[in-house]
């Protein structure tokens, strides 16, 4: 464990908590893409199947559990409890356009052709593109609530910090996982446009609006 990975995990946890609290306290999931949340729940499910078979540390197991519980709780709130506030008209990105190619790629490019490893690879590739429905929804509505933009900033920062962690681990341990690194770079690049808007607008107290 290094400070960059710890900060990355805490940023990820912060994002998940921000979103869950936003939905719970405002009793509304307006402006939030349910499809991205379903994809994130799928990412954690396929990545943490080894939760009970491969013990790394208390921290690792606790975080995996928290991520799983919070992601399913968010999906539950969006599609059941506060379903009436779910903006399905703007959340129209076709999830199958992501899941099918990512599933095929996981079969072709992986470290080890075993079920667990292919599912882990699937979760890495899927996480890279899981935010697309959310970014697509914001581009359609042309704006995002400030709390949602804080969620996205924390979520985008987590994988950016992981890239720093991978550089650090490469130089200190000689460890690198090309699949995670390439997917992590793609994932972070997808946020660049949003990062620019967040820094130039939200941090100056303005509403996050996309040029129509």
């Amino acid at each position: 464990m290094n400070i960059f990975r710890l900060l990355g995990d805490l940023s990820h946890l912060l994002a998940i908590i921000i979103l869950l609290l936003k939905i719970w306290r405002t009793r509304s999931c307006a402006g939030v893409s349910g499809k991205s949340q379903i994809l994130f729940a799928l990412v954690f499910t396929t990545r943490y199947l080894d939760l009970f078979t491969n013990f790394i540390s208390m921290y690792n197991s606790a975080m995996k559990l928290i991520y799983l519980v919070c992601s399913y709780a968010t999906v539950f709130l969006m599609y059941f409890k506060f379903k009436a506030t779910y903006d399905s008209n703007h959340d129209t990105f076709r999830m199958e356009f992501l899941v099918v190619p990512v599933g095929g790629l996981a079969f072709l490019v992986n470290h080890d052709f075993t079920p667990l490893e292919i599912l882990w690879t699937f979760s890495i590739y899927l996480e890279a593109v899981a935010i697309l429905p959310q970014l697509f929804m914001i581009s359609k509505t042309g704006e995002a609530e400030t709390i949602t933009s804080h969620y996205l900033f924390a979520l985008g920062s987590y994988r950016a910090l992981y890239i720093v962690n991978w550089v650090f681990r490469f130089y200190t341990e000689g460890f690198f996982d090309l699949i995670a690194i390439v997917a992590g770079c793609v994932q972070t690049i997808l946020y660049c446009d949003f990062f620019y808007l967040y820094i130039t607008k939200v941090l100056k107290g303005k509403q996050l609006t996309l040029p129509a």
């Binding site: 990545r47 470290h111 080890d112 075993t114």
Partner: peptide, 10 residues
């Protein structure tokens, strides 16, 4: 290389 399979990152 089995160290890849033992994914210690979240």
């Amino acid at each position: 290389n089995d160290n890849d399979n033992d994914h210690d990152e979240l």
